[in-house]
């Protein structure tokens, strides 16, 4: 992405020089593509790291109230090394709702993996769990 035509040409020329006699159009193409790929990986890494500090998610759960719901969820968050920043709970008749704000920045899972694990609990306990990134809520409800 960051390469100009000039730079690409330079990479190709270097490749041709290195290969010497063996240089063929396919080989050179492969080497240039590889160089571009590698540089892309390098470019992308620091970006995702800088984002990590903002990774908070909102976890919402509701269903039929039964013992152990909070324990199951928080236990998973503990295993995942995610810190719980806020929690609120309401009981309405037989039903409960829980909303948690979870900090994922130090966690060992990405959103998707954590969500998959949460869905396992949801299926097992027959409850609903939603995990969504905080940014969505901030965008939608705060100006």
């Amino acid at each position: 992405m960051k390469f100009s035509e000039e730079e690409l040409r330079q990479i190709a020329l270097n490749a041709i020089n290195e290969l010497g006699e063996k240089a063929s159009p396919e080989l050179v193409k492969k080497i240039v593509a590889k160089a571009v790929d590698e540089s892309q990986e390098n470019v992308d890494l620091p970006k995702s790291e800088t984002k990590v500090g903002f990774d908070r998610a909102i976890l919402t759960s509701f269903g039929l109230d039964r013992p152990g719901v909070v324990a199951k969820i928080t236990n998973l968050l503990f295993e995942a090394n995610c810190s719980l920043q806020d929690i609120s709970q309401k009981i309405m008749g037989d039903f409960y709702t829980i909303i948690m704000i979870v900090d994922l920045s130090s966690g060992k899972y990405q959103m998707k993996e954590l969500d998959e694990k949460l869905q396992e609990i949801a299926n097992e306990m027959n409850i609903k769990i939603f995990l969504q990134h905080e940014n969505i809520f901030r965008q939608m409800h705060r100006i």
Binding site: T60, Q132, H141
Partner: peptide
């Protein structure tokens, strides 16, 4: 909590339902 209960529910309703 930074967000109201019904704000959170409205967002979930949009994406899930």
């Amino acid at each position: 909590m930074n967000y109201e209960f019904d704000e959170i529910l409205s967002t979930i309703k949009m994406t899930e339902i």
